[in-house]
């Protein structure tokens, strides 16, 4: 009984710990833009990661807005956190769908072998219009071609090709659904992650070496108009 109570208390503790540990991590530890026109975007999020784990954030960016994405992470997750930006595309593809069913096997009138008689096209003793059941069953496969919409993701940006940059700014000239994919390498190594302020922010350290929080801070502002 004591073991059960301990178990329940332990899981409650773990649940509360994991729930609260990454709470508002991105607001506390990610560097906001120095440009005062950027506003916090409600699509920002933090989560607990283990080494080797990959997660996706699906967000919407609107035409006419500038966006800034920045990442911050617990120190123990290492330096080389990978983040990629994909566009979600819908592609119509034709797919052949096979339907299998079991049906009674029939013989045609020509195979009546003298049982019954044929009047024109009708084979009267063959149980129906020109066919006679054999008592066996056969598997029938019918094929149907359907047009289905498949979601694909197309790579737009990979920070491992950009010196593992932990932030990026872009102007959206069209509205798109994007996937922000974050991956912690299996062996991240020690050290301070890029994107973590060493003056006050980013000083948090998790006791367990394999897990830590990652925050994705998203900011937006109307794209500044240039020229006259």
């Amino acid at each position: 009984m004591k073991k059960y109570i301990f178990g329940i208390l332990f899981l409650t503790f773990v649940s509360t710990f994991q729930a609260q540990y990454c709470n508002n991590f991105h607001r506390k530890y990610c560097y906001p833009s120095e440009n005062e026109f950027f506003k916090y975007d409600g699509q920002s999020r933090s989560a607990l990661f283990s080494k080797g784990q990959k997660s996706e954030l699906t967000i919407i960016v609107y035409k006419g807005q500038d966006y800034r994405l920045s990442l911050c992470a617990d120190e123990n997750l290492g330096n080389n956190i990978i983040f990629k930006i994909y566009e979600v595309k819908k592609v119509k593809v034709e797919k052949v769908v096979e339907h299998k069913s079991t049906e009674d096997e029939y013989k045609t009138c020509e195979t009546c072998n003298g049982e019954g008689y044929i009047d024109g096209e009708t084979c009267y003793d063959c149980d129906g219009e020109g066919q006679r059941p054999t008592g066996n069953t056969v598997e029938v496969v019918t094929k149907e071609t359907k047009v289905v919409v498949e979601k694909r993701k197309e790579l737009l940006y990979d920070n491992s090709q950009d010196d593992f940059a932990m932030d990026i700014e872009f102007s959206a000239t069209s509205t798109r659904k994007l996937i922000i994919e974050v991956e912690v390498p299996e062996e991240g190594g020690g050290g301070t992650s890029k994107g973590i302020n060493d003056k006050g922010k980013g000083k948090k350290k998790l006791d367990t070496s394999e897990m830590g929080c990652i925050g994705v801070l998203i900011e937006h502002m109307p794209t500044p108009k240039s020229g006259f």
């Binding site: 409600g42 989560a47 784990q53 997660s55 979601k151 993701k153 790579l155």
Partner: peptide
Amino acid sequence: QAEVIKQNDEQTVYYQIP
């Protein structure tokens, strides 16, 4: 580079709403 998005047990997906 394109990848088809399929359901499996590999990674976590979060859908954010403005």
